[in-house]
Design a protein around this nucleic acid. Structure first.
Lengths: 234, 234
DNA sequence: CGAATACTTGATTTCAGTCAAATCCCGTGG
DNA sequence: CCACGGGATTTGACTGAAATCAAGTATTCG
């Protein structure tokens, strides 16, 4: 972990369009001044369950996975944070120890905003509070939906869904591959299944011409059918 | 659904100690004035997925289950709302259609607070916004934990956990029974399993002297062991 | 009191997890 | 540049937890 030149919040597109969008210009200046910033390589752990966080994080570049660790050490990926997303704010707000971990998936630049700043913003700018509230509500909806699906869908259905989620979250490269590289194990930890099951199902999907595989890269060849398999009706 | 005499928010203990605790006295008067209130019997549906909500609810008495409905119509219970708890606020905040349903489990008195009131409170009282934010964060933690557990624990483990959760949420009667009556199906819909599986496991638990059964009533006879089975380490 | 709903038990099936072994791939150090 | 080692991936065989199906009993409620 090493310091880099700190990107200005004032000119950060993600800040202007993201969760901080309602803050006035001078608050963004304060923010730039008060925050820290680090360049982090894949594999770097930002925090872990039971750590105490004195602030929260905002991704300027790269991808971070947020996950919880089960009894046997098996991870369950809760969500990803990419450029413009914040994470780690829950334990700050609740004043409790972190109940998830954060690890860099793709080399990242991550800013750190102290807890005191967060509470100042919340007290001073009610609209910022409402925006934060809406953000957590959206996350809550997602989490509740995930509970339903893990409880009621098959692994096959959930895998199809995860592939589509990855497309929506990270988009596709020019060649049509998912614009994110995950290990099979990481995919399994999203789906909530064993690594071997993901491997088997991916190769079934390949046989059925739903996807194409090239190492870790995955191309979605038949999105309609994947949606049908995943029981997704938008 | 019929109107009852509207309980005053000013004298409601739950209001004084719950999510509205930071509001000044005159706001509670406004609240009493602006809200509605209804007496609802078990089985009554308060709202369903895809309904548009123009306000949110506060339980004055009774128990309401919040759940999502899966493809085959099978419910997944997300949580319960009992006296002092609010629900339905997420869709109000996000302005989206409800993504869960709410149904009365135990005859209830439920107040209804209009969306406009909610937004006024949020804009006028930053501390109320922070309290709301903390509430959603706590729910979010719970939801994320549930994702991990449904993904990684066995049905047996989850059932033990659910029994303990019911104890913590609703307490015990004088005779030591869980102070809530659920059908086997409802328990299954909490655990995320088939009704038959719950029945089989409950009778196993009974054989193992972990619980005693008397119709729908359940007594926890060996909490330590239930905690061990559920892998709960507080 | 009768119908509907809830509960229970047994038999069977199946999805997905575990274990094991082989191969592939990638970064490191010589 | 290449060999090596360790992790990631793949495939196969087996197992087992839990779902489904089916049939009967018990409760509840109008």
């Amino acid at each position: 972990m090493r310091n880099t030149s700190i990107p200005s919040c004032k000119t950060c597109l993600f800040v202007r369009n993201g969760i901080f969008k309602s803050l006035p210009r001078e608050e963004l200046e304060n923010l730039t001044y008060e925050k820290g910033c680090n360049f982090l390589r894949r594999g770097n752990v930002i925090y872990q369950e039971n750590n105490r966080l004195n602030g929260f994080y905002c991704v300027s570049k790269g991808v971070v996975k947020i996950y919880k660790t089960g009894l046997e050490g098996k991870e369950q990926i809760i969500r990803f944070a990419k450029a413009g997303n914040i994470f780690g704010y829950r334990s700050v707000l609740s004043g409790e120890l972190a109940c998830s971990s954060a690890k860099v998936i793709e080399d990242s630049v991550v800013c750190f905003i102290p807890a005191t700043t967060l509470f100042r913003l919340l007290k001073k700018h009610p609209q910022f509070g409402i925006d934060m509230l809406q953000l957590t509500c959206r996350e809550l909806d997602d989490a509740n939906t995930q509970i339903l699906e893990i409880a009621q869908k098959t692994v096959r259905e959930r895998l199809a869904e995860v592939l589509l989620l990855l497309k929506d979250t990270f988009g596709l490269t020019e060649e049509g591959f998912l614009n994110i590289q995950l290990t099979r194990e990481e995919i399994a930890n999203m789906v909530g299944t064993a690594t071997e099951s993901v491997i088997r199902l991916l190769s079934e999907f390949k046989q059925d011409k739903l996807i194409e595989l090239s190492g870790k890269k995955i191309k979605l060849a038949n999105i309609q059918k994947l949606m049908r398999i995943g029981n997704i009706y938008v």
